[in-house]
Write a protein that binds this DNA or RNA. Sequence first.
DNA 1: AATATTAATTGTCAAAACGACAATTAATAT
DNA 2: ATATTAATTGTCGTTTTGACAATTAATATT
Lengths: 232, 232
Amino acid sequence: MIEYSRQPHYLVAVDCIVFGFDGEHLKILLVKRGLEPEINKWSLMGGFVGADESPDDAANRVLKKMTGLEGVYLEQMQIYGEPTRDPIERTLSVGYFALIDIHKYEAQLNDDYEAEWFLINERPKLIFDHNQMVADARTKLRYKAALHPILFEMLPKKFTIPQLHILFEEVNDTKIDTRNFSRKITSTGLLIKLAEKDKTGSKKGAFYFKLDKKKYAANAQAFLNLMPNLKS
Amino acid sequence: MIEYSRQPHYLVAVDCIVFGFDGEHLKILLVKRGLEPEINKWSLMGGFVGADESPDDAANRVLKKMTGLEGVYLEQMQIYGEPTRDPIERTLSVGYFALIDIHKYEAQLNDDYEAEWFLINERPKLIFDHNQMVADARTKLRYKAALHPILFEMLPKKFTIPQLHILFEEVNDTKIDTRNFSRKITSTGLLIKLAEKDKTGSKKGAFYFKLDKKKYAANAQAFLNLMPNLKS
DNA sequence: AATATTAATTGTCAAAACGACAATTAATAT
DNA sequence: ATATTAATTGTCGTTTTGACAATTAATATT
């Protein structure tokens, strides 16, 4: 029997930065940690990678367990592996970010876990290196969203242009001109205008749009250019 | 003493996709695996993550050991963690890609390891999931290089525009118009024209350029747009 | 019924970037 | 002096961009 002689073995975990959008602000979903050390402190949703699952599987499992949601948009970010990052025992953690429709989550709310949405800029201090993970996730989200139409994952199936607009501004932490944004986003050809209007925000109402699923699938891996130029 | 009760522990490794450029083609550096299983088969440069080092540290150590080079451009790609990816024992591997100046390497050649450059498109079959890793690395390199001026890392300090041109074509596996490329790359303001010429390639000779280190440091994290538009 | 209010929607224009295209130049070789 | 070869550079019409505010569609108010 071949063996890899006496190499050290480690725990491997996953941690998920769950982003949501309430129509006004970007939020993240945090939980109160359920085990020592740092029990009852706010932390990211996480868990250990089981013997018969990949890290991707584990992240999906953790999300399902804690939010009740399946098929969530999930993207591997990077690994966190400083030898001393966990004070108890060496644990490497694979960071993921997830994009979920905040309203779907509320419908699925699972009270077994004390989870709570926080404004991205008003979140509590987190345990270990989770603060760094959140910062990294924001950066990664920004990059990804500049080239790929993924922010739709945080909106309901029917959404309006003003909603999208605010979401893009939140993610990029900048103001975007209404006219230019509208022009750019419609020119992708990814949006289908519906007859119905959303009247909750104004008297005039804003037309609902939905994603063109076919084009979305085709373009999800393509380079787009969804943000104003950040070159200068 | 707090413990994470009976969670499974795994081996954690790093594997590096080392890219180089010989002036004509994109290449990767492979080694003959030195341990069972699959001993003497071609594989990526890799090694286990030691007890007192992070995966990043481990990748740098492995590169130093196998190529003699330090301070190499190294970027974490993703983790490979399918439960059965290593037939002997569960091992998760963190994939990195490295960009090195092929000539520097030749100067540092370390004969302790049977390493060899292969044309990216004529490489041998690799062990385990290393073929997938190479494919992923190419994709990631393409993305990164479209926004960030990192391909210079594969060129000598003094390089010519035609060299850069070929390198961009190789990485993106496409033809790029000479005039448009030249216009775009010089408009970044990252290049400093030298008085000297490289006469090896032609009678006329091509002017050498070097990187503007200051601007490079400032722009390395900025969005550029170094590739022809891939939107359509 | 007319008017006020509010947010959504749309238009213009000058500047910049783009993509497609080939002629000119600087050196060496004949 | 001429031929050869690869490097370098220029034009132009089209598209995209960014900066700018007026118009529209509905409800609420008078």
